[in-house]
Amino acid sequence: MSTYIDDQAIIGENVVIGHNCIIEKNVKIGSNVTIGHNVIIYEGSTIEENCQIHDNVVIGKKPMRAKRSILKEQKDFKPAIIGRGSTIGTNAIIYTEAVLGSEVFVADLATIREKVTIGTQTIIGRGVAIENECRIGARCKIETNAYITAFSSIGNDVFVAPCVVTSNDNYMGRTEKRFKEFRGCIIEDGGRVGANATLLPGLKVEKEGVVGAGSVATKQVESEWIVVGTPARKLRKVDAEQLLKS
Rank of each mutant, 00 (worst) to 15 (best):
R84M: 11
Y95R: 14
A138Y: 00
S246Q: 05
L100D: 01
I23C: 04
V158I: 01
A107T: 00
A240G: 12
N14E: 11
R68K: 14
I226Y: 03
R65P: 00
A80W: 10
A232T: 08
R139Y: 02
N56L: 04
T34H: 12
T117C: 01
T96P: 03
P201S: 08
D7A: 15
V104W: 07
T111R: 09
A240F: 04
F105D: 01
V39M: 12
N38E: 14
D239W: 00
C134A: 08
A107D: 11
R174G: 13
T175G: 14
G190E: 09
T144M: 09
T117Q: 00
K141L: 06
I5W: 07
L71M: 11
V165Y: 02
R126N: 11
T46C: 10
A197Y: 03
I22N: 06
E143P: 00
K75H: 15
H54C: 13
I23E: 05
A66Y: 14
R68I: 11
G229E: 00
I10Q: 12
V205Q: 03
I118A: 05
L71R: 13
T166R: 11
I154M: 03
V211L: 10
V165H: 01
T46P: 04
L71N: 13
I41H: 09
K207Q: 14
Q242P: 02
G173E: 05
Y4P: 04
I142R: 11
S153K: 12
R65T: 12
N156L: 00
V211A: 04
N32L: 07
G83K: 09
R236G: 07
I70R: 14
T90M: 15
T166W: 07
G30A: 12
Y4M: 10
T96C: 15
A98V: 08
E73M: 10
G202E: 08
I130D: 03
K141V: 05
N26D: 15
I40D: 03
F179A: 12
K204P: 00
G229K: 06
E222V: 01
T46S: 13
C140L: 02
E181A: 14
K219Q: 15
G202P: 04
K62Q: 12
N168W: 04
G125Y: 09
E241V: 06
P79K: 09
L203E: 05
I124D: 00
S2H: 09
V106Y: 03
A150C: 07
T144W: 03
H37F: 11
Q52M: 11
T175W: 02
V128A: 06
E241Y: 03
I59D: 07
I41P: 08
K245E: 10
L200W: 05
C51H: 04
N56F: 13
T3P: 12
T218W: 03
C185G: 01
I148V: 14
